[in-house]
Design a binder for these strands. Structure first.
Lengths: 226, 226
DNA sequence: TATCAACTTAACAATTACTTAATGATTAGT
DNA sequence: ACTAATCATTAAGTAATTGTTAAGTTGATA
């Protein structure tokens, strides 16, 4: 099973293909929704907020390229990974597809195993080095937005608290004494009392709970996963 | 749905093809007229002023190339996009076609879906700059008109405010410090005090409300989706 | 050139973060 | 179990950052 349920939206006007893809994706442990045309796809995407959209490029009413453009316009969905499906014979311009922000391109006939490995690869990459964030247990610490998520709840920490937590999480299970922490977070030219650290630790614990930062008496603090 | 009704003229001497094309185009939401020979095509075009003409190149009485030439002669129709239809076996000179101002070329047998995508692509290109907007929550930010819509209410922001908001919305949830914002919006050679940003932020908040731009104390500002 | 809107600056108020210090709780060593 | 050391917690004071307003400045426009 996957650590967390990833969401995939599949869009195609052929029911048989929707079923084929849905079946395979669910077997891999993804949460799947489907849409049978472009309009529906945009609606569902807004709500469902999938990480990946698998979409036929040729569809009645509104084709995949236009649909992709509309989806990418939405701030919430800007980083959604869009993969187009297309028959090899169709001479649809790849250029147009990439212009609207398509991220990958797969030609039919679909080989389920190959497709799955491609999607799995995406999620591996995504969770690994994409955004500037660290995950530790139920915590997600994101440097770009300066936020900490604890079980989907967003916490806002003041700067020093954030930096302190970030530093500890980046060096898990390693104990630092107060002076080391001051050096690394406050800087070498700042003169504050070592006990100041205690107060910050206290406030962090207040927000994320008592189970993450451990006191090592006589030495200092460390971040440790239960 | 389409923003505006686009007009397409289809010209072919085979009734079945006219019907096929008309059916598919109307299903896509276009306004369609048809003509079954070159003379009729010119007449209808003058009146109807279509944005796109889909025309068989081989027709009795007057072929597509000649018809195209006549149409392009007309000032009103100079910018009409002409797409020729031709059987792959026909060795009709592409050169002649492009000489008279044809804009694209599609070989029969016609695959309706591929054709529709091609036509959609044309209209998309045409209206590309008009639809240059981003959506984020209740906000729609339109670069061409320099306007921001908030729940159907149109706001007009001065240039700096607009650019600042646009930049933040384009990079949602990412925190920028004042200098980064100055760099990106004012430019690297401009020398203004960092606190100027605060004033602009204040004015933007006055207009769009307090819930979109978040202050990250000690760091900067970010646009955050609720 | 007079007017107006946009932009910048500066000053001060308000808010928030940070540090300190004092007191209470816990732990380790004897 | 006693004591000394260390840590936790709280509250209050201080510093830093941001919010807000208003008064200049610039630059475009009629």
């Amino acid at each position: 099973m996957k650590d967390k349920q990833h969401k995939v939206l599949v869009v195609d006007d052929e029911q048989s293909i929707l079923e084929l893809l849905t079946y395979n994706l669910e077997k891999e442990g993804y949460e799947v929704k489907s849409a049978s045309d472009g309009f529906e796809a945009v609606e569902v995407a807004k709500d469902f907020k999938p990480e990946v959209i698998l979409m036929d490029i040729m569809m009645p009413n509104q084709d995949g390229v236009e649909t992709c453009r509309q989806i990418k316009e939405n701030g919430d969905l800007k980083n959604t990974f869009v993969i187009f499906l297309t028959a090899r014979s169709e001479e649809y311009s790849e250029v147009a597809a990439f212009e609207v922000g398509a991220d990958d391109y797969i030609t039919k006939p679909i080989k389920p195993r190959a497709l799955m490995s491609r999607i799995n690869a995406y999620f591996r990459r995504d969770t690994k080095d994409k955004n500037n964030h660290i995950t530790a247990g139920d915590l997600i610490i994101d440097r770009t937005s300066y936020t900490v998520r604890l079980n989907e709840v967003e916490l806002i920490l003041p700067k020093k608290e954030f930096e302190l937590l970030y530093f500890l999480v980046k060096n898990p299970n390693k104990v630092f004494n107060r002076d080391e922490l001051l050096q690394n977070i406050w800087g070498s030219d700042v003169y504050v009392l070592a006990r100041t650290v205690d107060v910050h630790i206290r406030k962090i614990r207040e927000k994320i709970g008592e189970n993450y930062i451990t006191t090592v008496k006589g030495v200092g603090y460390k971040f440790s996963l239960a």
